[in-house]
C-alpha cells in the first residue's frame, strides 16, 4: 500500500540524504531508528508530503504523493495521512473535541467516530477541556486522536514518546498500534527512543548505526 522508491533529498550541498526504500502493506508497522540529525524527521516529512523529495516517488494507495501540490496535497494529507508529533501541538484556543472536529472540517469529514476514539484513548471526559488543563500524556493522546480523526491509511509518528515517562510512553505506543490495526492503517514510527524497539520488531536504522 505504501511504497517509497529511490528518494533523494538535500537541504544543501553538504546535507544530502539517501533514503532507504520502504514497502508497507495495510496494517503493517515499521520503526525507523536513528540518532538526531540522521534524517529521520526528513523521511517523515517526505512521507507526509510536507517536503518534496528531489527525486524518487512516494506512493500511497494509487496516489503518487510527491506529484500532488497545493491544496490537493493538503486535502490528501488531511484525509489519508495522520501525523503525530513529538510535542502534542494541540490548538490551545480550541477544546479537545473541537481539535478533532477541525481536522474533520478541513477534509469535509463528518467525524462520527470522534467520541468513540476519545473513549478508546481514555480522554473522553476531557473532551470539553482546553489543552492547558491536560497532562503531557493526555495531550499526546489527544494528538493521536486528532491524527486518527479522519481514518488515515498511513499513520506517521515523529518521536511520539520522547517527552513521556516510561509508563505513558508504553501506553502511547500501545494505543498507536491498536488503532493502526483497527483501521488497517500502515504505521511508521520514527524515534531514537530505544524503549519503542521492544514493541515493534520491524525496523530500519538510519545513518548506519543507532
Amino acid at each position: 500500500m505504501l511504497s517509497v522508491k529511490n528518494i533523494k533529498f538535500q537541504y544543501d550541498a553538504q546535507n544530502s540524504f539517501q533514503i532507504p526504500d520502504i514497502n508497507l502493506k495495510a496494517g503493517e508497522q515499521l520503526l525507523i531508528l536513528g540518532k538526531s540529525g540522521s534524517g529521520k524527521t526528513t523521511i517523515l516529512n517526505i512521507l507526509g508530503g510536507l517536503l518534496k523529495p528531489d527525486s524518487g516517488e512516494v506512493k500511497l494507495g494509487d496516489t503518487l504523493v510527491n506529484q500532488l501540490s497545493g491544496a490537493k496535497l493538503d486535502k490528501f494529507r488531511g484525509k489519508h495521512i495522520g501525523i503525530v508529533f513529538q510535542k502534542p501541538h494541540i490548538l490551545a484556543p480550541l477544546t479537545v473535541e473541537d481539535n478533532l472536529r477541525l481536522a474533520n472540517y478541513f477534509v469535509g469529514a463528518k467525524g462520527e467516530r470522534n467520541l468513540e476514539l476519545l473513549k478508546e484513548l481514555g480522554i473522553y471526559n476531557k473532551r470539553k477541556s482546553k489543552v492547558t488543563t491536560l497532562s503531557e500524556g493526555e495531550a499526546q493522546r489527544v494528538s493521536i486522536a486528532r491524527a486518527l480523526a479522519n481514518h488515515p491509511q498511513l499513520i506517521l509518528a515523529d518521536e511520539p514518546t520522547a517527552s513521556l515517562d516510561d509508563e505513558n510512553a508504553a501506553i502511547v505506543i500501545k494505543l498507536l498500534q491498536e488503532q493502526a490495526q483497527k483501521f488497517n492503517a500502515a504505521l511508521i514510527i520514527v524515534t531514537h527512543d530505544q524503549r519503542v524497539k521492544d514493541h515493534i520488531s520491524n525496523h530500519i536504522i538510519m545513518g548506519g548505526k543507532s
Partner: peptide, 16 residues
C-alpha cells in the same frame, strides 16, 4: 506559526 503548520498537516490549504 506552529498552530498554522499543524492546521496544514490536518488538511487546511494555504488559502484556508
Amino acid at each position: 506559526k506552529y498552530d498554522l503548520a499543524v492546521m496544514r498537516t490536518l488538511g487546511a490549504s494555504s488559502l484556508q
